[in-house]
């Protein structure tokens, strides 16, 4: 995600001025081309279907892959001609500032830690860390309270699933403790 060209929603660019190119959008176009290319590549590897399959297994992938490729090219062309995305607005969103890459990266790191640890430590522990970590990244300064709230949520949700819904969430290293 680029911080150099921030889209300004609902204003567009001034008529007459040189079109501002949103360079990051080329990244999306490239992603579409790559995805489309991979869908096509995957489809080539498929074999003819059974005799009772009038629609070949590769038929739809060919269409989807080709259209994705085409859309990627079209988006690149539109971008070069000054097409601006209308970034989504919302109650808590302030689009006047640049993208906060650091916050997003740290949040992703917290989520990845959760993925790596969840099988070993179990949800009751990683959930609490997940909540406290995210709250800390998003600007909460009272880390002890974050951890307390997170623990209440994760242990509470574990027991809610276990007692109310009768579904045991894998407990990880706390197996036998919870």
């Amino acid at each position: 995600m680029s911080t150099t060209t921030e889209p300004h929603p609902a204003s567009g660019h001034e008529p007459g001025s040189r079109p501002v190119v949103d360079k990051a959008q080329y990244g999306l176009a490239a992603f579409l081309v790559l995805t489309g290319g991979y869908v096509l590549y995957d489809a080539v590897g498929l074999e003819d279907g059974f005799a009772d399959q009038p629609v070949q297994p590769y038929a739809l992938p060919y269409v989807v892959g080709a259209v994705l490729l085409l859309l990627g090219v079209l988006l690149a062309v539109a971008t070069a001609r000054g097409d601006q995305p209308e970034a989504e607005e919302g109650e808590d969103i302030d689009l006047t500032q640049g993208t906060d890459v650091r916050t997003v990266g740290l949040l992703a790191a917290v989520l990845i830690a959760n993925i790596l640890l969840i099988d070993w430590l179990g949800w009751a522990i990683t959930g609490a860390l997940l909540f406290a970590g995210c709250a800390g990244v998003l600007g909460s300064r009272s880390h002890i309270r974050d951890l307390a709230v997170g623990t209440a949520l994760s242990v509470g949700s574990w027991y809610f699933f276990y007692v109310v819904l009768a579904i045991p969430i894998p407990a990880g290293i706390l197996d036998g403790v919870l």
Binding site: G90, I93, D94, L95, D100, V104, V137, L138, G139
Partner: peptide, 10 residues
């Protein structure tokens, strides 16, 4: 959530 985090109104 990630999108809001990227543009959180302070």
């Amino acid at each position: 959530a990630l999108w809001v985090a990227a543009h959180l109104r302070r």
